[in-house]
Amino acid sequence: MMMKRKMTFVVTGGGTGGHIYPALAIARGLEKRFSGAEVHYIGSHRGLEKSIVPREGLPFLAVHSRGLERKVHPKAMLSFGVTALGLLEALVVLRRLKPQALIGTGGFVALPVAMAALFLGIPTLIHEQNAFAGITNRILAPRVRKVLLTFDEARKRLESRQAVLTGLPVRPSIVTATRAEGRQFFSISEDSFVLLVVGGSRGAQRLNEALPTLAKAWSGNNKYHIIHVTGQANYDSTREHYQKTGIDLDNDGNIKIIGYLDHMELALAAADLAVGRSGAAFLSELTVRGVPSLLVPYPYAAENHQEANARSMEAAGAAQILLDKDVDGETIKKTIQSLCNQPTQLASMAKAAKALGQPEALERILDEIEDVL
């Protein structure tokens, strides 16, 4: 039953888009479910959330945080000290805000913030995006009210009194954006083939270096368009790779490279094929939209969980996989052009991706939050 009194919530999570965007989706869902609710975001001083969240219009507060060292090392003391400072800062903030509940989505900053909430007796839930839970959520799982899961196999690494399979939430705009809006935003005609390349919030160097070979073949041909999101740290070097290939980015209107994209929902809505890493958040967006994909799992992800994610997509017929070690310009060019020339296969992949989508994940999460309240 919807509660009538004004509510206050805190969401926390950060470092990469994989933690930030689920937190933002939950925040928007809370605002809608609990009409008039105030939702505050607590992040770190150094994570991407510091720039992303204010642009989304949510109140943002930063506390100190640092990755935990898994080995005995002088840096371990520094990590402990910074985390303790973040805990004290979070205690001050949460005492002032007095939220009805706190929801964490992982990342190093979620640890001190969620621990502060637990000390203050604030109902706390966490969401685990991946099949292999990260260290923050493994520490928090036995202590929080509920653990919300994207993959059921994550239970194996989480000691939780109550773990619930909900799926991974995506921002409502990911679901509602239309193809026409996406094409208009990027000034692309309806009959053009659009390739979206996303390396994740921090980019993917091998992808960035390989794409110019394909772009050169498509340069000036408005039948094809490339939207390449490089990651902010890799933008300048990627631009140099394009220029060395002989592409005039200032005049080739069918090739757009972007360091960071605020409106990913419009890029996904416009895309006919996506190429990118296989983090859980990106895969959830692809499947909700029904976008076929060529996945290049990040090879250094913890427990190699990105390849496991990608294999599940491949097994369902929603994606093809190209391992990072096999990525080069000619291979990328050949693989993507082959897919472009098989519209029936792309349509089948799109249908399979859509079947995997969990557009109801956000509502399930909100139900669990309301149950705790």
Score class of each variant (00 low, 15 high):
residue 225 H to E: 12
residue 7 M to N: 15
residue 215 A to V: 08
residue 359 P to M: 09
residue 293 S to V: 02
residue 76 A to R: 09
residue 371 D to E: 11
residue 195 L to E: 03
residue 70 R to Y: 06
residue 180 A to W: 04
residue 189 S to K: 15
residue 320 Q to V: 05
residue 44 S to K: 09
residue 13 G to T: 08
residue 26 I to W: 02
residue 217 A to I: 03
residue 210 A to L: 02
residue 324 D to E: 08
residue 335 T to P: 03
residue 134 G to F: 01
residue 135 I to H: 05
residue 310 A to N: 04
residue 225 H to P: 01
residue 158 L to N: 04
residue 151 F to H: 11
residue 123 P to C: 10
residue 357 G to R: 05
residue 332 I to Y: 04
residue 303 E to N: 15
residue 184 Q to V: 02
residue 323 L to V: 07
residue 78 L to M: 12
residue 307 E to T: 04
residue 106 G to V: 00
residue 207 L to V: 10
residue 269 A to L: 11
residue 274 A to M: 15
residue 326 D to M: 12
residue 68 L to E: 09
residue 28 R to E: 15
residue 321 I to H: 04
residue 341 N to P: 05
residue 194 V to T: 09
residue 273 L to S: 13
residue 153 E to D: 14
residue 355 A to F: 02
residue 210 A to E: 02
residue 254 N to M: 07
residue 187 S to D: 11
residue 296 V to Q: 03
residue 175 V to L: 12
residue 301 A to L: 09
residue 233 A to H: 06
residue 275 V to T: 10
residue 94 L to H: 02
residue 192 S to Q: 13
residue 85 L to R: 13
residue 22 P to F: 06
residue 267 A to Q: 06
residue 370 E to A: 06
residue 246 G to P: 03
residue 367 D to L: 10
residue 353 A to P: 04
residue 8 T to D: 12
residue 276 G to N: 07
residue 290 G to T: 11
residue 48 L to V: 01
residue 256 K to P: 05
residue 352 A to C: 12
residue 69 E to M: 11
residue 190 E to N: 14
residue 164 V to F: 05
residue 199 G to K: 00
residue 216 K to S: 11
residue 48 L to K: 01
residue 309 N to S: 04
residue 106 G to D: 00
residue 60 F to Q: 15
residue 4 K to G: 13
residue 125 L to A: 01
residue 176 T to N: 13
residue 237 S to K: 11
residue 130 N to G: 04
residue 246 G to C: 13
residue 329 G to T: 07
residue 259 G to A: 11
residue 69 E to Q: 14
residue 80 F to R: 13
residue 102 L to F: 09
residue 182 G to M: 06
residue 45 H to L: 11
residue 352 A to M: 07
residue 13 G to M: 06
residue 68 L to R: 12
residue 3 M to H: 09
residue 226 I to D: 11
residue 159 E to V: 07
residue 370 E to M: 04
residue 88 L to E: 14
residue 371 D to G: 06
residue 52 I to E: 00
residue 336 I to P: 00
residue 177 A to H: 09
residue 310 A to M: 08
residue 96 R to N: 10
residue 367 D to S: 08
residue 225 H to F: 12
residue 214 L to I: 12
residue 372 V to D: 02
residue 279 G to V: 00
residue 104 G to Y: 00
residue 90 A to R: 02
residue 199 G to I: 00
residue 268 L to C: 12
residue 285 E to T: 08
residue 353 A to S: 15
residue 296 V to S: 03
residue 184 Q to S: 14
residue 266 L to Y: 15
residue 322 L to F: 08
residue 59 P to A: 14
residue 212 P to Q: 07
residue 301 A to M: 04
